[in-house]
C-alpha cells in the first residue's frame, strides 16, 4: 500500500485515495472533427509506461480533491504530486 502525499492534506495512506488513471489527457475541443480512430484514442487508449508515469488521483476519503502524481511504475516510488493545472515536474526514472 502506497503512502501518497496529497498536495492539500499531506501524506496519507493509499486507502484514502482512488486512482483515476493517466493524467494530462485533454478532452478534444472539437470531437466532431475527429476520425473514429482519433476519438477512440482519446476515449480508450492509455500509455502503459514502464518507468515514470503521470497519473491522476483523488483524495476521495479526505479533501475530495483531484491532483496529479508522478509514479515510477517499476519501483512504485512516487516522485512528485502536484495540483491540477500545475505543470508536471521534469523527472526521469
Amino acid at each position: 500500500m502506497f503512502q501518497i502525499d496529497c498536495p492539500f492534506c499531506g501524506p496519507r495512506w493509499q486507502v484514502e485515495f482512488v486512482c483515476g488513471g493517466e493524467a494530462h489527457i485533454e478532452r478534444p475541443i472539437n470531437p466532431d472533427m475527429l476520425s473514429d480512430d482519433e476519438w477512440a484514442d482519446y476515449v480508450f487508449m492509455r500509455t502503459n509506461s514502464k518507468g515514470m508515469h503521470y497519473e491522476r488521483w483523488c483524495h476521495i476519503h479526505g479533501c475530495r480533491q483531484w491532483f496529479n502524481a508522478a509514479r515510477d511504475t517499476v519501483s512504485d516510488k512516487i516522485h512528485a504530486t502536484y495540483r491540477m493545472g500545475e505543470k508536471p515536474p521534469e523527472l526521469s526514472s
Binding site: 482512488v18 483515476g20 485533454e26 478532452r27 491522476r56 483523488c58 476521495i60 475530495r64 480533491q65 483531484w66 491540477m84 493545472g85
Partner: peptide
C-alpha cells in the same frame, strides 16, 4: 458526485 467533481476539477477548472 465523483464523476461531476472529476470533470469540474480536472477539465473545466
Amino acid at each position: 458526485h465523483q464523476w461531476l467533481e472529476e470533470w469540474l476539477q480536472c477539465e473545466w477548472l
